[in-house]
Amino acid sequence: MMRMSSLQALHQNMRQIGIETQRFEVRVGAAEFACLFSVAANPYCLALTTRGQHPQFCRFDVRPGYIISNYLGENYGPLRDALYVDGRAGEGLEGARFLAQLNDVIPHVAQQGRILQPEEIVRVHPNVDDADRPYFDRWERRGQGPTERNLQKTRIILGDDARTFSETNRVSSIWSQLPTNRAWR
């Protein structure tokens, strides 16, 4: 297990400016990564997408205490390919070493303009209902009010205030496949 102190510092700064998601770029070894950090659901999520001709996607659950497992699992192959690391050519890829290097380059300061777009959020959170419809469209009264899954999607994409609004007013969020440029308020 690796404690990611940089994610903790970044999250503290994100709270100060009132955001739940942050996008940033880092370089580890020979690879550049576009990163997405989201605290909109438990566990928190850190997603890395390699930059270059053949992008690879890796997702890490961030547990309480900003802990990420050293075991790379299905992330091993994409990371090995991105880092040009192979057991026959010098140093092999080790989870603890990679995460320590990553921790060293994650920014500690969030930037307001680097928040995630809805289509990025649903990619990072695979359990979101109707992931093909990431754009808020409108509120609608349906039956007994919003389902738990609808509330979860509302919170993940729009935040706690929108979820509270949905619950309090017993309205469901309706989503679109196409950008609507509509705010929830």
Results as ranks from 00 to 15, higher is better:
Val85Leu: 10
Asp86Ile: 12
Arg97Cys: 07
His108Asp: 04
Val109Ile: 14
Gln112Ile: 12
Ala89His: 13
Asp104Ile: 00
Gln101Lys: 15
Asp104Thr: 08
Arg88Pro: 00
Val85Lys: 05
Ala100Ile: 08
Val85Thr: 15
Ala96Arg: 13
Leu99His: 05
Gly113Ser: 12
Pro107Cys: 00
Phe98Pro: 05
Ala89Val: 13
Gln111Leu: 07
Asp86Met: 12
Ala110Gln: 01
Leu83Val: 11
Leu116Phe: 04
Gln117Pro: 00
Asn103Cys: 09
Gly92Glu: 08
Val109Ala: 01
Gly92Met: 05
Arg97Asn: 08
Arg88His: 10
Gln101Asn: 11
Pro107Tyr: 05
Glu91Cys: 10
Ile115Arg: 15
Gly90Leu: 06
Glu91Phe: 09
Arg88Cys: 07
Glu91Asn: 11
Tyr84Asp: 05
Gly90Met: 06
Gly92Pro: 05
Arg114Asp: 01
Gln101Leu: 15
Phe98Met: 00
Ala89Glu: 06
Leu102Arg: 03
Gly87Gln: 08
Asn103Met: 11
Leu102Asn: 01
Asn103Val: 10
Val85His: 02
Leu93Gly: 03
Glu94Phe: 15
Gln101Glu: 13
Leu83Ser: 02
Gly92Ala: 15
Gln112Cys: 03
Gly113Gln: 12
Phe98Thr: 01
Gly90Phe: 07
Asp104His: 10
His108Ser: 07
Leu93Asn: 03
Ala89Ser: 15
His108Met: 02
Asp104Lys: 11
Gln117Val: 07
Glu94Asp: 13
Gln101Phe: 12
Leu116Arg: 02
Tyr84Arg: 07
Asp86Val: 14
Ile106Cys: 03
Ala96Ile: 12
Tyr84Met: 01
Tyr84Gly: 09
Val105Gly: 02
